[in-house]
């Protein structure tokens, strides 16, 4: 079973590369093995960690950028202001106050808690995003729960999924597969509501916004 790795680096950029090695390698930091797993502390201007594919990783920075490449297991990343880029994870939680977040692929649940910036998720099993003022863009997802104070939301969903979006301000655009017939509940206090796909019992799209366009379309 791959080890659980905990990485803490106050301001150094952190790069994690998963796959291609059996053990854990560290460049730019110190490493301690405990009963709980492996603890790595950044001590230079750059921290690079190599680990086996599927490893569970927890990363904390104050302002350092975080980048992961290769397949990881359960990943938790918290940074106050660093940019976050995750290539591949089984399950993911990212928390940042002002950084941009990009997720390539997350097999299971992908949670992002973002104050400001932008969240882009290419593909995920399910997403839960809360944001104060970030734009949220999800390319291909199953179930989705998104709460934004202000900022646009763009979602591409699969068939038979549950989508719930709550927004104070900003356009919400949901694109469903061409043959999908979702049940819809679309409510905008101020703003247009446009649904261009036939409705039925094929999943649910529930969007409520105080101000902003709501648009549901089918992929061509």
């Amino acid at each position: 079973m791959p080890p659980r790795i905990t990485i803490a680096a106050r301001s150094a950029p952190v790069e994690v590369v998963a796959g291609g090695v059996d053990g854990v390698t560290v460049d730019g930091g110190s490493i301690v093995t405990t009963d709980e797993g492996i603890e790595i502390t950044g001590r230079s201007s750059r921290l690079r960690v190599g680990c086996p594919a599927g490893a569970d990783v927890r990363i904390a920075t104050a302002s350092g950028k975080v980048t992961t490449t290769g397949p990881l297991g359960d990943v938790h990343i918290t940074t106050r202001s660093g940019k976050v880029s995750v290539g591949e994870a089984r399950r993911l939680e990212v928390r940042t106050m002002s950084g941009r977040v990009h997720v390539g692929a997350c097999e299971g649940e992908c949670r992002c808690v973002v104050t400001s910036g932008a969240v882009t998720i290419d593909r995920a099993g399910s997403v839960e995003v809360t944001s104060t003022s970030a734009k949220v863009e999800v390319g291909d997802v199953g179930d989705a729960a998104i709460t934004v104070m202000s900022g646009a939301v763009v979602l591409g969903t699969r068939r038979n999924t549950a989508v719930k979006v709550r927004s104070m301000s900003g356009a919400v655009r949901v694109q469903v597969p061409a043959d999908a017939r979702p049940r819809t509940s679309l409510r905008a206090k101020v703003g247009k509501v446009r649904c261009e796909c036939p409705t039925g019992d094929d999943g649910e799209i529930d969007v409520k916004t105080m101000s902003g366009l709501i648009e549901v379309t089918c992929r061509k």
Binding site: A8, R58, A60, A62, T78, R80, E93
Partner: peptide, 17 residues
């Protein structure tokens, strides 16, 4: 659920949260 260590503004060492 653990979210791992976090750096808090003004606090030197990361805090488990």
């Amino acid at each position: 659920e653990s979210i791992g260590p976090v750096f808090l503004r003004g606090v030197a060492d990361p805090v488990e949260a």
